[in-house]
Write a protein that binds this DNA or RNA. Structure first.
Lengths: 234, 234
DNA sequence: TTTTAAAAGATAGTAAAACTATCAAAAATA
DNA sequence: TATTTTTGATAGTTTTACTATCTTTTAAAA
């Protein structure tokens, strides 16, 4: 039995749906490889076109510009990840186990999901770590938000936030903690890889340490029911 | 009595020291205004030169490229902030108070420090929020790190990490928690401003809520002395 | 099977960005 | 006053980020 996972993307992200042609799938596939290898700044439609064996104009028929393409692949990842989480936590009642599974999924090196032939999730995970925040750290964030380009990210955030509330309905910062988990899972890995002195994992370089840190952070926080923060000096 | 604060910058960040001429100071001043208003992507040396009344070549005599210029102003900010923290926590013994002051300083809208005439710290704070992570989220991060361009950031991180250890010497994640505090203070503000559903502060839009969240997160975590993370299911 | 519409290929061209180079004028300093 | 350093003015190159057009190929409808 073989299942093919299909992710429905926001139409406004592309001019022509890349999933509906070989060329389109190649654009996605090689974009992921290129951005991963050379970084988003060095990535151009011309170089991409050369790698695929098409022309610059060919790529422009699918995506308005490289920012939209990045938005596309990053959104795709968040949607894919949300499905993984829903799948992985299905039939599990205990929110503790669910949260731990989510933290592990966010932090661990992903393996290529073969049910999506033109997308290498392992590379995509690394792109999300290194380039992910560039999709919203722009002056067009408001306009992009109005076009619902961040919906997959928000959905994921809400999913995690709701599990936090399930565990502790009195916890006041479920959404912020959810976005903190997502962002920190990736940023601590980036720091561990590139600026290790900003982390406590510089020696081990092991994602299991990142997971332990996040577990400690999250559960300390949602177990602490004190309305007043911590010790009350000043 | 008037004190003039001078921050010594890494020589390799510039070709000619911008603090040593009027033109140089103008480059810094107008860069901060421009990047704040239009965003780093739209910022070019040509537009900057026009605003100042010099030429593109004039700017290139000071900075190799716009990435170095961003690194310069962001590093400047971290150094300036570290000084503020050292100053503000001087003679305070209680690490709790120190940490709370730091969290507040990181999260609150900064006011322009008049002892640094050509730098508007209020704008710079907003730039660090919106553009700060772009200095390290590049493929040159390794090379930039070798040139010690991230030293001010690391110093600040170490300062905070050491205070965490002062409070709880057994806490295992002082560095990662320190970088989490810095990054999250800024990112939660960015989300609050631009993607409020990712936070719990969308309605109030108040930094004091961000501060409360971070205080709760930090103190829950460093007060939790359990070696084993949280509840022990799975 | 023909027709026709959609997608891809090939080529060309433009505006702006990201630089480098050169030379003369002005300022600062010795 | 001489000399070095800094600026101004101008010009030019390569690359990026597009837009336009026309032809060929492919796919779908009639």
């Amino acid at each position: 039995m073989k299942h093919v996972l299909h992710i429905k993307m926001n139409d406004s992200l592309f001019l022509r749906n890349p999933e509906q042609s070989e060329l389109g799938k190649n654009i996605i596939k090689y974009s992921i490889e290129f951005i991963n290898k050379q970084g988003f700044e060095a990535f151009t439609f011309k170089k991409l076109a050369e790698a695929i064996g098409t022309t610059e104009a060919g790529v422009y028929r699918y995506f308005e510009n490289k920012h939209k393409l990045l938005l596309y692949i990053i959104s795709w990842y968040w949607s894919w990840l949300e499905f993984q989480i829903v799948f992985l936590t299905n039939n599990i009642d205990d929110p503790i186990i669910k949260l731990k599974k989510i933290i592990r999924l966010l932090s661990t090196k992903i393996e290529d999901d073969l049910s999506t032939a033109h997308v290498n999730e392992a590379l995509l995970h690394q792109i999300v770590i290194s380039e992910g925040s560039k999709v919203y750290l722009t002056k067009q964030v408001e306009s992009d938000n109005k076009h619902h380009f961040f919906k997959p990210y928000k959905d994921l955030c809400k999913l995690i936030g709701d599990i936090i509330l399930e565990y502790n309905p009195k916890y006041k910062y479920s959404k912020s903690l959810a976005s903190t988990i997502i962002e920190m899972a990736h940023l601590q890995i980036f720091f561990m890889q590139n600026l290790p002195s900003l982390t406590d994992f510089g020696k081990s370089k092991s994602t299991s340490d990142v997971i332990a840190f996040l577990n400690h952070l999250v559960f300390s926080s949602i177990n602490n029911i004190d309305l007043e923060t911590a010790p009350k000096n000043k």
